[in-house]
Design a protein around this nucleic acid. Structure first.
Lengths: 158, 158
DNA sequence: TTTTTGGTTCGGTCAAGACTGAACAAAACG
DNA sequence: CGTTTTGTTCAGTCTTGACCGAACCAAAAA
């Protein structure tokens, strides 16, 4: 249990944050470590040692981070091991767009709820309609917002 | 275990959805029940019976839904019990705005990560800067988006 | 071939927290 | 008063799933 450096505390804090977001604590720690590591390329083994975690846990959680797209692997000629790094070409827009899916599912529940509701005219029905209208609005506006981001990042990006 | 009607299935489905969102299954069931119930005002006792759940679980989860603002209590003169209903004046805008807080916390982690990072120039530093810039953008755009919603709902609302 | 490296997978453990039941409270009713 | 109604709270149980250790595997090295 060493929370000596501010970096260690940052890593644990990020673990807790990820946990609160519904992901595993360990994946948050791994990402946290990659954020503040000495070098940008980190080996599997370095992670197990730095985080004092089992190989299995690192393996599982790393795979998750690779899948989400936060992390990319890097292999070097003449080297057996794989290095891991924060994705150089991380597509935040795509990441966020994908999270819209959850909003869509919520919205479908609202609509389904309304369709199942006996009375279409009472207060609860109104609640459902308003919820759905709001979510429709969000789903409609989001793409435009991401497009504006695209514009803006293009401008400053090159 | 009765999943006879489509309404029952809807309620369980909503429970699972809430669980996936990081809330309790029971709170999702309660909200689901309120969505498709016969009447818009539902008593505590009706909830325990309909959902076959303990009083304690209903009590705890109902309190949570009241706190979030999804549900409102209704008391009637000459009646001891409290009825619960989907909030007639649910403020979806405020609800969403509050969820922005999580984005803010993430953003702060990115910024803190960058400040703790030894090298400010490598790829990981770039990742952190881009993440933070994107989140800055979202945080900046959101209020305007909610204002547009306000406009729109005012137009159609009255 | 055997050994070492780098990692995966699988069975089991352990902890967190959702839910239960029982004890408790408060308020109205008789 | 005692009883009933309407919940709340708290200690305990039970489930889920994150994490661990060990067995396993593939590829390279020796």
């Amino acid at each position: 249990m060493s929370l000596d450096t501010e970096r260690d505390r940052f890593i644990e804090e990020n673990g807790l944050l990820f946990e609160k977001l519904g992901v595993t604590r360990m994946s948050g720690r791994i990402l946290g470590y990659l954020m503040v590591a000495e070098k940008e390329n980190v080996s599997f083994n370095e992670l197990t040692e730095a985080l004092k975690a089992s190989k299995s846990s690192i393996s599982t959680n790393l795979k998750m981070l690779l899948q989400i797209g936060f992390v990319k692997p890097l292999t070097l000629p003449g080297e057996r091991k794989t290095y891991y790094m924060l994705s150089p070409d991380m597509d935040w827009r795509a990441y966020f767009a994908q999270r819209l899916e959850m909003i869509n599912i919520m919205n479908n529940m609202f609509k389904k709820g309304l369709s199942l509701r006996p009375s279409k005219e009472d207060n609860a029905a109104k609640w459902l309609r308003e919820a759905s209208e709001f979510y429709d609005f969000i789903i409609e506006e989001f793409p435009a917002m991401l497009r504006r981001w695209e514009e803006k990042s293009k401008q400053s990006g090159r």
